[in-house]
Simulated scan of single mutants.
Amino acid sequence: KSCHVILKGPTTTPQKGDGRPNIESANVAMRKELDLFANIRPIKVPDQGINWTIFRENTEGAYAVGSQGINITEELAVDFTVTTYQGTERIAELAYDFARKNGFKKVSLVTKANVIKTTDGNFLEVCHKVAKKYPDIITDEWYADIMAAKLIDEKRRRDFQVILLPNLYGDIISDEAAEFQGGVGTAGAANIGREYAMFEAIHGSAVRMIEEGRGDYADPSSILRAAAMLLSHIGYQEKADRLTKALDICSFEEKRLVVTGRSNGATCREFGEYVMEVIKRDEVPSGAGTALK
């Protein structure tokens, strides 16, 4: 807490039965302790017309009590989903405000309110109340399963701009969305609160890659994009734009080196040096990009 802005490296949370300690996710714990209520994940693939910014509620929902579910009997286990008015209102206000400030015209709400009528229904209701303050922004609704399907619909997915979801759906949908950009190794995330902010890669620490001897081939793009978001957050927008543009050139335009996660692609170091080479070019602009405000 002595540092209000953090760039955090990937961590891995053990799952039940894998032989590791059954501890709570470090990410979930930090998000709750620092009240980092907004998880923001931009996804961009220019040649496919994709420019999405995903706003995931970050402290409530199905992750609210973490590992503290109850085994009532050997045959019955119960976990909990929590939605509050305040928690939903503040993530919705942030999403709509971001859309307005950055020229986006649509916010898509994603729930399963047709089945999970209480918590998801409340989330949807509060979001619509916030939406009334932004009459210039179009609001539409999607069920989480249909959104997952429509992201792979080449015609429909171009329509999505800002996507607003409860915690669990946001986690799943944003990882799916990252695949269009090149996988979870290519997408960064911001965790924003009133007092603190934490920026991170959206993936874990890639235990399997280490176990298979492929650690040198990890993609650094995710943490670099997180760093660009951090720069934007603390007011260095031109530097953020320059880093983002360099990553776009390396990943979408020139593609001189490609990270595959295996020995048939570039290493983490090689790709990082490629980005640093590009960022020094005079022609790399530092104009007004999407501001993380």
Score class of each variant (00 low, 15 high):
residue 167 N to A: 07
residue 119 T to G: 13
residue 22 N to D: 09
residue 237 Q to H: 08
residue 61 G to I: 02
residue 45 V to A: 04
residue 165 L to R: 00
residue 203 H to S: 09
residue 45 V to N: 05
residue 277 E to R: 15
residue 56 R to E: 06
residue 269 R to F: 09
residue 168 L to E: 03
residue 15 Q to P: 04
residue 190 A to Q: 03
residue 7 L to D: 06
residue 248 D to M: 15
residue 197 A to W: 01
residue 169 Y to V: 10
residue 248 D to C: 08
residue 114 N to F: 11
residue 117 K to W: 04
residue 111 T to G: 01
residue 258 V to L: 10
residue 1 K to R: 14
residue 287 G to T: 15
residue 126 V to M: 07
residue 70 I to E: 05
residue 44 K to Y: 01
residue 196 Y to T: 01
residue 193 G to W: 02
residue 79 D to Q: 08
residue 178 A to R: 06
residue 76 L to P: 12
residue 114 N to L: 12
residue 183 G to L: 01
residue 183 G to M: 00
residue 122 N to Q: 15
residue 69 G to P: 04
residue 37 F to D: 00
residue 28 V to D: 00
residue 268 C to W: 06
residue 196 Y to C: 00
residue 255 K to S: 09
residue 93 E to N: 15
residue 206 A to I: 09
residue 165 L to G: 00
residue 94 L to V: 08
residue 172 I to N: 06
residue 101 K to C: 08
residue 270 E to D: 10
residue 10 P to W: 08
residue 132 K to L: 13
residue 26 A to G: 11
residue 22 N to F: 15
residue 213 G to K: 12
residue 140 D to M: 13
residue 200 E to M: 10
residue 138 I to N: 07
residue 242 R to G: 03
residue 158 R to V: 15
residue 46 P to G: 13
residue 270 E to H: 09
residue 252 F to H: 10
residue 65 V to K: 11
residue 152 I to W: 15
residue 152 I to H: 14
residue 99 A to M: 04
residue 42 P to E: 02
residue 204 G to P: 11
